Amino acid sequence: MSDLSPNTNESSEPALGAWILPISSTQSVAVGRHELKYIEYVETVVDLPGVPAFCEHGFLWRNRFIPALDLWSLLTRRRMPATNAEHLAAIIAYETAQGEIAMGAILLAGVPKLVTVVPAQSVAVSDLHEEWQLLSHAAFKDENTLYPVLDLRCLFDKTPADLLSLH
């Protein structure tokens, strides 16, 4: 595997790392290289009744409760069928509005992939589909695919009602 530290390409543009997270068979999103902390199979997911389908899950990990977002349910506004199978989750770290580091998880439909991104790949957030514009703070194109870069504070530092009002 290649060196994961920021480097430069042949044209001396600074390169950054981004994790591509598959959230369905047809949609992937990205987070910064340092935002993804762990990739875990989660055996027991707790359902929290009375909250929207996209944020009704969580699990205990290293003696703390980790809220788990189902971004595909948020995007499509459809509840995914419950299964007893293990869930693959990307455990991420983000900075709260109070400046503290907090943890959350994004439920995945496949294994994440680390890619190198250079400034020339940058795309305006306004070029994303409308549903991603409020959940992303950047975007880039890689191999003819457009990836929204998630605004993790927007996703995890809001209440379910706040997130629903975005859509």
Rank of each mutant, 00 (worst) to 15 (best):
E95T: 15
I106M: 07
G104Y: 05
A85H: 10
E86D: 12
E100S: 09
T83K: 03
A89E: 11
E86N: 13
A90I: 06
A102E: 14
I106K: 03
L107M: 13
N84K: 13
I92T: 12
A85D: 15
L108H: 01
T96A: 09
N84Q: 15
A97F: 09
E100M: 05
Q98Y: 07
N84M: 08
T83Q: 06
E95D: 13
T96Y: 11
T83G: 03
I91D: 04
A109P: 11
V111Y: 02
L88H: 01
A97M: 13
A105H: 02
N84R: 12
M103K: 00
A82K: 11
I101W: 09
I91Q: 04
I92D: 06
I101H: 09
G110R: 04
T83E: 03
A105G: 14
Y94S: 04
A102W: 05
M103E: 06
E100N: 13
E95L: 15
V111K: 01
G99D: 06
I91P: 03
A82N: 07
E100T: 14
A102N: 10
Q98D: 12
V111M: 08
M103W: 09
L108Q: 01
A82H: 05
A93Q: 14
I91F: 05
I92V: 15
G110M: 04
L107A: 04
M103N: 04
A90L: 04
G104C: 10
T96K: 05
I101Q: 15
A97V: 14
A89R: 06
